[in-house]
Design a protein around this nucleic acid. Sequence first.
DNA 1: TGCCCGGGTGTTTTT
DNA 2: CACCCGGGCA
Length: 754
Amino acid sequence: MNVLKELNEAQVAAAKVIEGPIMVIAGAGSGKTKVLTHRIAHLIENGIDPFNILSLTFTNKAAQEMKGRISSMVGEDLSRNIWMGTFHSIFARILRIEHEKIGYPSNFTIYDTQDSKSVIKAIVKEKNLDDKLYKPSIVYNRISAAKNSLIDPESYQNNIEITSTDKATGRPEIGDIYMSYHQRCFRASAMDFDDLLFKTNVLLKQNPEVLYKYQDKFKYILVDEYQDTNHAQYLIVKALAARFENICVVGDDAQSIYSFRGANIQNILNFRRDYPDYQLFKLEQNYRSTKNIVEAANSIIRVNKEQIKKSVWTANNEGSKIKVFKSYSDNEEGKTISNDIFEKTQNEKFAFNEFAILYRTNAQSRSFEEALRKLNLPYKIYGGLSFYQRKEIKDLLAYFRLSANLNDEESLKRSINYPRRGIGQTTINKALVCANQHETSLWNVLCDPQRFEFLINSGTKSKLDLFTSTILNYNSRIDKTNAYELAHEIAKNTGLLKELSSDRTPEGIVRFENIQELLNGIQEFTKQTEESKLITLADFLVDVALLTDADNEKEDDRNKVSLMTIHAAKGLEFPNVYIVGMEEDLFPSQMSKNSRNELEEERRLFYVALTRAKVNACLSYAISRFKWGNLIQCEPSRFLEEIDPAYLDYKKYTKKTFSNIHKKKTNVDNVLRNKFSKPLPHLKKVQNIKQTTSYNNKEEILKINVGDDVLHDRFGKGKVIELNGEFPNTKATVFFPSAGQKQLLLKFAKLQLI
DNA sequence: TGCCCGGGTGTTTTT
DNA sequence: CACCCGGGCA
């Protein structure tokens, strides 16, 4: 089979080169992923060993998708051996293999942003610095930027430019905090996200034999989304590719949207310098969108000064113009968009998953959630607080992490007194002082108080002993026991499950369910590979910090409207795209108004948003919106003026159409209730539950009895099987033919007697 | 040590 | 508006 036969001329040209450095500048929707996957398949068909291929992507999801596509072309047996993943996950893997060379244990913990900030916060406090000036996020960003430029704590303090900037902003101690932070992480056998790249650079630089080994292994390297690589990533790629120079990078400068976290478009320009005999390919034909959308997007990006010249075009239909909606408030914007979605599903037979609502900030999702929920339209929110960042999940993971790495200080602090076991802040603080004095880990101090002059009374001592011996027990089994078995035991024996199950508030129930979901996930994880192989909790923990929600996609999430930030939408496409909150200070964000560069990045972001659309694009703005509890007036975004008006269709949005929509709503509800009797799965976000606090009144609740037929606005008709608990916390077990058995709190579930 | 209340503060975007 | 944190009190 010729894997290149499905490609166009430009795509074939880029995919068929086997040797040498090549750069592919790929316009939006031009089949960039297709070129990458077919190129890899082509390499394999030409006898290149999959073990010699390294393919770096921006997200885990992209990696999985590519792997799937390649496997369907060359077969799973071959494709499974390709190293494909994000920079972070691939190099975490390598660091675990080569851990000795950098003085870390192989089971090091990966600190997520929360963990890192918490470490910083503790340091700021210890040093008695002003915590309003040294905010964790500011300090974290400074340290992160330094690490991405490969500046270690010493170089930081010796770098006049950096230190004078810190002095100028009134924060001369950041270098000092960086030093402590660095030591603290090391002591905890932990690395933050940036360390994964930083230490990989150190590893490859200081160990020529290791570099040689991986150069030899990764003879063919591919990098997707090259425009969004940062300096640390650039150097890793450069080092690995130095020997064979079989490197293929794919990107689009017009879609560079991550400079705020160190991404550097210069990397594209450096490529020419580093590989003077490189071949350049441009993919300019867009296969995704209508002419209108492509042209409108071109008219936007043209405003930017800095860009590589290319002309994206399409042979697709003209399509309809881009609709512009004006609303009076953020809530009305939600209704407007939801109604438009509903109409399209009715009149044009679009499925729910053919819609996306894209916004600049996560906070904007609320009004759309509410409006969609009212119309009974199923939706899924991507991003926001990820599953793995939820408090209850982190609480349980802390026990796992601590059991795997006893030095993990963040996990220790988190788990030692939750659930309560009488080891309070005072005790911890005392122990921390000892740990700092003796330059050892908190864990060591707790295990051997005498040795580290940690003075405690016998009561506390016995509580500590109980805790440490429990953890030691888990620790001894972490790589010998089935992951689910141990995870479940930990959840149960530490009292965490009990603690959560005793909380009968709706939020508490969601938390309990989340824990169950995590345990189920672990159980699934143990089954994914060959049957006989023992999968341990240590295996599960290896890259749990690098997982995101996108890796968690559920079957029942398939036919839903997608809500996400534009950043999260990168690389995706939808027939119908709504870009909402098109207002000055929101999009473009007010933070970006300081410099031309930042404003151009916002414009690229808008370009990315618009080019996600295949058939219909829609822009929306509100003239007023709630911000921090205050209603503020908004100006339409300058981007609306920048688009060539020839591609726009300004919807007149009068009172009349508004009331029509309202009249329709009742209708909508009924139609939908019959048509989609499937349950709308409960929201994952804990906050969402809280917002619906309109309780049912007492009489209504007391009227309901076992055996009654009731109507629920999500699950439809059902029968009450059981009632438990006293008013107002009466809980009903209801059987819904369409949704199965559900436990509902009567004060929240608006059940109607039939 | 734990709980409750009040004030202060914050929203870009993410591996 | 919501959340987080710290102070004060039991």
